[in-house]
Structure formats: C-alpha cells, structure tokens
Design a protein around this nucleic acid. Structure first.
Length: 353
DNA sequence: GAGTTTGAAACT
DNA sequence: CAGTTTCAAACTC
C-alpha cells in the first residue's frame, strides 16, 4: 500500500521509534484519501508510506504535485497549518473533556508535551505537564476542580497513573499480567507511555533523600519519556545492576560518563531547589554543555535535562543508540526509607495520606 | 476483530 | 460562529 510514498520530512526527528513525533504513527484512513487533517500523515506534513494501511490514498509520492497544491491551498488560508514545530493536533492545545489528557486521545499527551494555557482541557492530568503547571513554558494558574479547590496535582496524577495499572497488585503479578510492560512491546501497541525496552533494566536505589531513583534503559528515541509504573516496579525487582547512589554529588554510580557524575545535574542549586519546593510541578532545564556524546541538535531541541512530570525528575544520556531513562520520584512522606522503600508503600502512603 | 469512545476536523 | 456530523485513532471487550 502506498508504494512509492515516503516520509518527506527527515529533518524533524522523524524516527520510526520516536513516540513523540506523530509522523511515526502511520494512518489508516479509508474515506478521505489522506488529504484531510484527519489523516495523521497529512496532518504531520508527511506523505503516506508502506507502513500505512490507508485506502485510496492520494497522499503519495506519485501524487506529490496534487498534495502540494492542496497544501498550498490550506496554507493560503492558514500559513501555520503545516508548521512542524507545533505538531499534529496540537496547534492550539487540546480540548480534552473526558480523557483527562492522560491517554493518547489527548494531542498534547501524544506529542509528549505539556498542556498549556492554550488548552481548553478539563481535569488535566497530562504527565508531561498539566495545564496550570509552573514551568517556564506554561506559567498558569493552579488547577482547580469543583470539588476540592486547588488540587494536589502531583498526588492526583500518580493516583491516576497507579490506579490504571492495578496499584494494589504485587509487582510480580502485575508484571506477568500486564502485556504493556514494555518488554515485548513493539510499536503500535496501546501502552500509555509506550516505552520499548531495549536492554535489561536496572535500578538505582533511593538515597536518604526524599527520593527514589529508578532508571531503565530504553531505545534512544524514548529517552525523554517517563517510565511507566510497571517499568519502575520491574526495575525494582530486576536487580541486574542495582546500585545505590548519593544523588547529589558523591555518587558511587559506576557507569562511565553517567550524568549522575555530573555535578551540574544534581548541583547544590538543584538540591536547594528541590528542597525548597515541596512538590515539583514542572521544571525544564537546558544544559547545553552536557551532551554526553549524543546529538547536539537533538539535545538542543529537547534539553539535556527535562523535569516535566509533577513527580518525576527525569534525565537521560545516550550511548550507541541506547538511552538511560532515569527518574526521581518524590517521596514526600517517606523520608529516610532508603533503598528498600517500596513503590506500593509510596503510593499508599503518599496520596492517601 | 468488532464495537465503543473520544477529540478534532469538517460541515451546516 | 455555534452546533452538528464525520472521521480516524484510541480504547475496550
């Protein structure tokens, strides 16, 4: 199907395994010949290709002139219609009313970006940054609902995340039952966070700080996605490379060129920042000189360290196509639990307390 | 795989 | 331009 068609925008991280870029999600259009914004490919400014399952597709290399003509017509009305920076279905923010920005119905979630003031969503629980978070990119008012006034955003987010994955099941049960644990999961599945695990997972145990650290190796294109709860739990039970570490300086992390060894990542300033902010809502940092050898342009566009989730402080490095996806989970109520603290304990003791 | 739900695009 | 319909993806069973 769609022979001859190909991606026409290779410069925009159009990696097949990049879940953030919707260009890697091929379309299945039946009626509109892939010439409307209903079509994911067309919407992304791309031609359909062999991966698509569309019918009567006209968004092909063979019809490139026609496609360009239609695009020009659309752009005449809306010059920003194919602005690759804004992403598919996220040009003006989402309007989610039922999905709570917590699954792929939400354009922001699909694109791996935070909801913003432009969004008209209700009950936003976008793990990449809720509407109303305090990041520089999304300086907004606190999220409120009609029942409880200002929400405890972090706890509610984790509540949702955990409840969606049977939070009270023990880890081994959950791992065996949940087919979305990422291990055998190829692209196209329905996993919420959809992280393909390319290497054995490992764990970095929590320190004496109010955090637990979890990391897992993922394919490089996934490095800036939060780990799923299942993956975190798996990493806890998969002690292939368990290590304990002092997060903020004297790390005994053994990995070469680990970002943990970079004092600027867990700098005194960051510690102070984390100490002074009871609950991180959304912080983004860009440290252009900490490239750790991966593509400068990618890093420039995504940042060396991303703190987007209310609970999660994630960072990553890449090496030969693999990435280390690491997260710190705030443990506001479990200070001092150390390496043996349990995610389940965390969930129950944090958001229920 | 069929049916349902969802949010956005397209239409009226 | 507000309301409705259509669409394709996401999701559930």
């Amino acid at each position: 199907m769609n022979e001859g068609a190909s991606d026409n925008n290779p410069a925009d991280l159009n990696n097949e395994k990049n879940p953030i870029n919707d260009a890697n999600r091929r379309c299945n259009c039946k009626k509109k010949q892939c010439l409307k914004f209903y079509c994911k490919c067309f919407n992304s400014g791309n031609l359909c290709n062999d991966s698509c399952s569309c019918k009567n597709c006209m968004n092909t290399e063979a019809n490139k002139d026609g496609v360009e003509e239609i695009k020009k017509h659309i752009q005449w009305h809306n010059p920003d219609a194919f602005d690759s920076k804004t992403g598919e279905r996220n040009r003006n923010g989402c309007h989610c009313s039922k999905a709570l920005c917590f699954n792929k119905y939400c354009g922001c979630f699909r694109n791996g970006v935070a909801c913003t003031l432009n969004c008209l969503c209700h009950g936003c629980k976008n793990i990449y940054g809720i509407k109303g978070s305090s990041s520089g990119a999304n300086e907004q008012e606190p999220v409120k609902d009609s029942n409880s006034g200002t929400k405890n955003v972090e706890l509610e987010t984790m509540d949702t995340a955990s409840s969606s994955q049977s939070p009270h099941a023990n880890s081994s049960t959950q791992l065996s039952e949940n087919s979305d644990d990422g291990v055998d999961d190829e692209m196209g599945n329905s996993n919420v966070n959809n992280i393909h695990m390319a290497m054995p997972s490992n764990q970095v145990a929590s320190s004496d700080y109010d955090f637990a650290v979890h990391q897992d190796h993922v394919d490089a294109p996934y490095y800036d996605l939060p780990l799923t709860l299942v993956q975190i739990q798996r990493s806890r039970n998969d002690f292939t490379e368990q290590q304990s570490t002092d997060l903020f300086g004297d790390s005994d992390w053994q990995g070469e060129s680990s970002f943990l060894n970079s004092p600027s990542v867990y700098s005194d300033d960051n510690v102070a920042e984390l100490s002074s902010i009871p609950r991180i809502q959304s912080i983004e940092k860009y440290q252009p000189h900490e490239t750790h050898g991966f593509d400068q342009e990618v890093e420039a566009s995504l940042g060396a360290m991303t703190l987007q989730h209310p609970f999660l402080r994630s960072s990553r490095q890449t090496n030969n196509g693999d990435a280390t996806n690491m997260q710190l989970l705030l443990h506001p109520h479990l200070h001092g639990h150390g390496p043996s603290s349990d995610i389940a304990d965390y969930e129950e003791n944090s958001y229920h307390s």
